[in-house]
Amino acid sequence: MRIACPLCGARDRREFTYRGAALPVPALDAGAEAWSVHVHLRENPAGPLEELWQHELGCGAWLKVRRDTVTHAMLGVVLAEDAGLAARDGEGPA
């Protein structure tokens, strides 16, 4: 498997570390319900899924990878910092 890092180009899977679904991060004060949902209730779709990977043994960038979990096709990769997942204090989760 290869992931096209927006900074480094296509690289072998061994350089990357998987985290899980790329979900909007709740605000710190979003409350136990919102955080519990964020941590524990995950979709597990057969098909396209947005995931977080870190190019840990490469440039260190966190990536939002859109990947088909059935075919393993890579559907798009962006830097996570540009993906709008950030927590904004005072706002609940999306």
């Binding site: 985290r19 870190q54 966190w62 950030a86």
Partner: peptide
């Protein structure tokens, strides 16, 4: 280290 990168790139890139 990965956690710090996560916080600064994903949760709080600002």
């Amino acid at each position: 280290m990965a956690h710090l990168e996560y916080l600064s790139q994903v949760a709080r890139p600002d």
